[in-house]
Every structure is written in C-alpha cells, then in structure tokens.
Design a protein around this nucleic acid. Sequence first.
DNA 1: TATTGTTATACTCTATAACTATA
DNA 2: TATAGTTATAGAGTATAACAATA
Lengths: 195, 195
Amino acid sequence: MRRPDDKPALRVQRLAADSDGELEHDLTEEGGPAEEGLPPEVDEDTSTPESRKLHELIIQLGRYRSLRDPLHGICEDNQLTPTQIHALMWLGNDGPTHVGVLAQRIGITKKTITGVVDRLEHMNLVERGRDAEDRRAVVARLTDKGQALFHRISRSVDQGLRRVLDLLEPEDRESLFGLLERVLQRLGRSTAQAV
Amino acid sequence: MRRPDDKPALRVQRLAADSDGELEHDLTEEGGPAEEGLPPEVDEDTSTPESRKLHELIIQLGRYRSLRDPLHGICEDNQLTPTQIHALMWLGNDGPTHVGVLAQRIGITKKTITGVVDRLEHMNLVERGRDAEDRRAVVARLTDKGQALFHRISRSVDQGLRRVLDLLEPEDRESLFGLLERVLQRLGRSTAQAV
DNA sequence: TATTGTTATACTCTATAACTATA
DNA sequence: TATAGTTATAGAGTATAACAATA
C-alpha cells in the first residue's frame, strides 16, 4: 500500500489499465520508432489503427460540439457548475451517500468534496449528516429543493440525449444500446467495484 | 442580434436544438403531467423511452468510470488541466488559430481564453502572434516544445481509446465506427459550421 | 496506526464588466 | 458602430499539506 494520501478516483479512470501507479512520464520522448514497423511485442499499451480512427472521429465531432463539457448548456440554464451537477445527479440516483464515495463518483479528491458540499449546502440543495454506524463518516443527501432540482436536471439530460439519438438511424440506436450493454456486462465481470 | 457580449461556444452545445436563445427556465416546475399520457403535441423537446434508457446506461457506466473528466489521467500524467489539454490538442490538430476560434473549440469565452493562453505561453508551449490580414486578431500556435507535448498527449489519448475499444467485440467496434460516421455525415449536411 | 473529513494555502478556471485597438 | 482581445475582479474548482475525530 504505497499510496501516500488519497487520490481515490484516479484509478477508476484507467479502466482495465496497468496494475497500479507506475508510468513516470517515460513515454519515449517523441518522434518515430513506436509508430511504424511494430516490434514483435504484444503491444499491450499501444495505439492501434482502430484507436487512431476513433480518435479522428472524435476530433471531427469536436468541430460541431465542444468536447470539453457536455453539460455546459445544463449548467448555464441552472446556474450550477459541472461538478455541482454531477454531485446532484449522483445523490439523486444513489440516495444519501458518504461524501468520500461521492468524491469518488465525481472524480475529485476528499479535500475537494468538502468545499463542493459546503456550497451545495449553502444553496439549500444538500444536507449533511453523520453515519450512525461509522461516526467518522459524513453522509450527504438531497433536500426537498435539491430533489426537485435533480428531477429537473435529469429531464434536461434526457432531452439532450434525445437530441443526440435523433441524429441516429433506428438501427444505429439499437446498435448503440446493445454495444453499451455488452460493455457493461464485460465491466461487471472483470471488476467488482461497481455498486 | 440581441446577444449583448460574447458567449460563442454555447450554442454549439445545442446540436440541432431550437433556433437560438430561448428557454428561460420555464421547464414546468416539477412533478408529473409531462411524464405519462403524452399530449398530442409532436413532443419536440421531450425525453423518450430511448433517451431515458441511454441515460440509465450512462449512469451505469459512471459507476465504473467517472464521467466528469475523461482526460483526468492524462491531465495528471502531464501536470496540465483539462482546458490546457484541449487547447493543445486543437492547436496541434488545426495549426495556428485565432484565440477566439480556439475559445469556441474548447467551449469557453474570449475572456477566459486569454488567461489560458497566457499560462500556456509562460510554459513555453504556445506562442502568440498577430494576424497580418486582420490586425485585431491574435493567432496562437504551438512552440516546438508544445508540438512535442501534443504528440505525446495524442498518443496517450490513443492508448486510452484503445483500452476502450478493447472492451468491445470486433462487430461492435464496426458498429461504433459506422454509427459515428453517419452522425458526422448528418451533422455535415445540417450545419455549415464545421471547418 | 489507519481512515474519514476538514482547514489553510495556492493556483487555475470561469464569467461579468470595462477597456483598447482595429475594422 | 462592431469586432477581437485584454485587464481587472470575484467566485468556484482543484490538489497539497497539516490537522481532528473516530475506528
């Protein structure tokens, strides 16, 4: 257990990546050799023609719709930040949650979640309480106002997704659902960290 | 042209949404009537069973991988913020760019892009210049150091996408590519704002 | 001792409003 | 007058380090 403090959500980012926390910037400075004439390695952690193609497609999409913040419009409409929206969405979906777990879901550290919950509490969207089982833990839950906002935001997200789906042919929508379900199945088999 | 100042990147978020800048929070406070027994409208801006299903699937995915910042790992590895990564990626992909256009690509305002480019300039990753045609415009471009970093980041993204693709069966990868290509075609036909 | 949160500090992001320079 | 950027200013996000309370 070498990890010094906490950086809980980061490993989640790696999906099925390497074991723990190596790779210290030693990504072969720059240039060519890794590109053409793949060495006889099993290329565990290399890009592939397909990954480059996907990369290309995503960049094309980015010319129509900014990739940085998919929730931008919703944030604007509700005068909330992306982090706040994510916090509300997870609390709405999961119910009362330890703030540490909430941090993990959102992808921030425990140091940061404190301030986020502080501000949501000031807005009367969230309440703090203590866990009776483990008196160290702080549980965050939505207030009635927060719950109502959660429903409204949730519907906005639905509408946004509907506009995305409108860009797809019915067969492509089917493909997408099937594809996502199989990814979830695979993730469920290979890990045990989902709720 | 009612728009007071600038908020350029926001409309891009709306994809094929409504005309311009309406919808002033009048989303029927909360509760029921909009849900069941759809009125005889063409429900232009409503959620659908399919959009709700997609919503559900995305939340499931979020339990395995934080949805808030897909570039988190790359940001960490390179000690850069998401905004900075996006700026470098667009400059690397598009070459020298007006900072206003860059702001649009990233999805931030012109006020914000100034500081972002400032900091990238201090890091010697980006240089500023004037456009000879329109002397008001500032052009940002990568330095050699920035170019090298761009290539490194680009490869990291490829590797990340490769790990995502590894979760898909070959047929699903095919579906995904086809689906994205058709979305891009459709976007290309319905708009003229991509490069 | 280890874990859960919080506090203090510092830097980045972000938008708003007021401004400069060019068109 | 309109447009492209910049300069304050202020609030939010973020990580690091040091700390308090509980386990």
